[in-house]
Nucleic acid binder design. Structure first.
Lengths: 382, 382
DNA sequence: CTGCCGCGTGATACCGGTATCAGGCCGCAT
DNA sequence: ATGCGGCCTGATACCGGTATCACGCGGCAG
């Protein structure tokens, strides 16, 4: 029951009738294929103009099997990182005449599966995904898309279980570089916020690495970079300084507070995400501590805010736009007939040094300054 | 030329063949309509399962004329405000079984027109739009959608030229409340950053109001609220304290620097958007000034960053999720057959008082510190 | 035993495009 | 004059669903 036709705009048949030509002629003119004499072409165009004709993309896709639409699945549109990525993707897609459908999973694998199905059902030509999948048994939905002939390109998070093109940054190197800066400033008690979303905190370095190598996901790589820098400086790994598990700002505050209350407390914190940084900052304030003197800080994902903080924050800037643009370009090339390279395209991030790193405050052993062991009652307004 | 069928997944006919039933029977089973005997139903289901059948949403939409998809057009996905909005929209849409296609226009009317056409072509059932359109002659694309029977709901920015449902916040009240707080603290030289994107700065209050009333767009309402508060406090309007025109953080820095360098400089700044706030903060630092003592600050759109700034920023928090949820609910109700109310649904924002407002620094006339030359505000009155 | 009713099923005409192909018309060569 | 080839054009069969409708079959009443 096609509700109330006549509303939904004219069809090609109506245009043809108006122009007094056959349906096929109107279709050739409007579809821009085949040959039509200048005279008829003009008549069709005039009729289309008059009627306000717009081609039905659904019908066209049905017939051609091609939708000129890319599907993008991201973990969280609310995250500025993904927002930037998206802009890169849509800019280059539009350039090449493709539309983009965006779906956000909010880090929920179930929603990622649902999103993939939506894209399959809507017959997108290709998919770009920042997947929440970690393991071999969590990629069935992506494999289903591929099996149906829909090319998939990974972005931000590579999934080892899938042999696909992936566009990522040098997470491990970036993290290592940041932690090296901390080490060079003299820090040895460096907190890692936050890590792989595993169920329980790994007790040993070995366990941690095992967890990290389950996959190439972003957090895992950043953790490896952290470990690399520690190793190079011969700083022993301390599981108490690593936060893993569910990623909520709330938990960061708790965990960093804990690290700050340790007898041998943390003197620097490395944050792998924006929310980790804001959470750490909250914890600092709660403890009546400030940066960079009490605690040095470096975080991932530069933003306007980080630059206007007082003092301004040293941050790692990811090439978000390029990341998105590259992912779209790779996918579009495949759609254009190129053979998938099935390789990792790694882009470089950049450490922007500002003023949130200073040498650790020298502490005479045995008599740590007040304000770091028990929390003093809030002297500051909430 | 349907490239290589067999790739794209089984069709309903193939499922029917596999199950040994007629096409219609398979369709009824899989489509969940009409009657099918339990026995055949089971056979069809088994066949579908075996073949990995997924319905082609395109074909279904073609046939039914309904896509169960909402189109959303926002100005900028990179803006956390819109990201939050989107989440509200997709949460309630998904609840009601609708998918969402998001298009970002980056404040470009041309792209908004293109986006609208994409949505029309893809035959979405309804559209939610935060339009960049201001005037009567800029809404043709939205009217085209409506004429084609696609319901449109406005969000964040109401467009006066269109008699549609709109979900907005009490922008004027929110701005007035914020400026009142500034006034109550003793400020009389209050900067407004930033205003309507008009071509040239209005010189008089009258001109400004005229510009603002061209439409109900967000900035205009916020400007009115600012003016309201000034009027109530009998503070004369000074065009030098209002920033209008293109909205770039770069320009904010320049304009606020200018306001800070005025003989009778600004002692407080009210920002209508996040970028306005970060820009103002930059300008402050450049001038060697700090808040809240040198300059009081209030801004729109609370964020995690605003709360961790030192001192924390007093901000207006918009109910972003509710805004999106409400817009989706209104649209979905219309799609469900409800008569459009064509009214303004106004949600309340909340001023979160933190520590970026203090009374203006009293300065003995005649001996003001270099770089800041405050005069009593009254000295400028005509 | 015949007729009618009703239920379950399958055949089929859509939806609005694309793409193939047949056929009409014209010109030119024989 | 006839035949043939090329050029345009329009008829039509798809794409993969939905929805209508006709038909076959069984049961029950007359």
């Amino acid at each position: 029951m096609p509700a109330d036709r006549g509303q939904a705009g004219p069809t090609i048949s109506e245009v043809a009738a108006e122009a007094g030509v056959g349906r096929a002629t109107a279709a050739r003119t409007l579809g821009g294929y085949g040959y039509v004499s200048p005279e008829l072409r003009a008549r069709v165009l005039a009729a289309a103009e008059k009627l306000g004709y717009r081609a039905n993309a659904l019908a066209r896709s049905m017939s051609t099997g091609v939708s000129h639409t890319l599907g993008v699945i991201v973990a969280d549109i609310g995250n500025p990182f993904f927002a930037g990525l998206l802009r890169g993707i849509s800019d280059t897609s539009r350039e090449r005449g493709f539309d983009v459908i965006v779906l956000s999973t909010y880090e929920n694998l179930g929603q990622e599966v649902a999103a993939t199905n939506v894209l399959i059902d809507k017959r997108v030509d290709g998919v770009i995904v920042a997947s929440a999948a970690l393991d071999r048994d969590q990629v069935a939905h992506l494999r289903a898309a591929i099996d149906r002939g829909i090319p998939v390109v990974l972005v931000d998070r590579a999934v080892a279980a899938l042999d696909l093109d992936a566009v990522v940054i040098d997470n491990r190197e970036a993290a290592r570089e940041a932690v090296e800066v901390l080490v060079a400033a003299g820090h040895r008690r460096i907190g890692f916020v936050w890590g792989p979303p595993v169920a329980q905190a790994p007790a040993t370095r070995r366990e941690l690495l095992a967890a990290a190598s389950r996959n190439l996901w972003t957090d895992g790589e950043r953790l490896r970079g952290y470990l690399d820098a520690l190793d190079d400086a011969h700083i022993p790994f301390d599981p108490d300084l690593v936060m893993v598990g569910p990623k909520t700002e709330q938990r960061v505050v708790g965990e960093v507070s804990r690290m700050l209350a340790l007898p041998d407390r943390v003197t620097a914190v490395f944050c792998t995400e924006t929310d980790g940084m804001t959470g750490s900052l909250r914890a600092l304030r709660k403890a009546g501590l400030s940066y960079p003197d009490d605690v040095a800080l470096i975080g991932f994902d530069d933003s306007a805010w980080a630059a206007v903080m007082e003092p301004p924050l040293t941050m790692i800037a990811q090439p978000v736009h390029e990341l998105g643009a590259k992912a779209a370009a790779v996918l579009l090339d495949i759609l254009g007939g190129a053979e998938p390279a099935r390789e990792m395209h790694t882009l470089r991030s950049r450490l922007i040094q500002r003023s949130s790193v200073a040498p650790p405050r020298p502490v005479p052993p045995g008599q740590e300054p007040p304000g770091q062991v028990p929390f003093p009652a809030e002297s500051r307004d909430p």
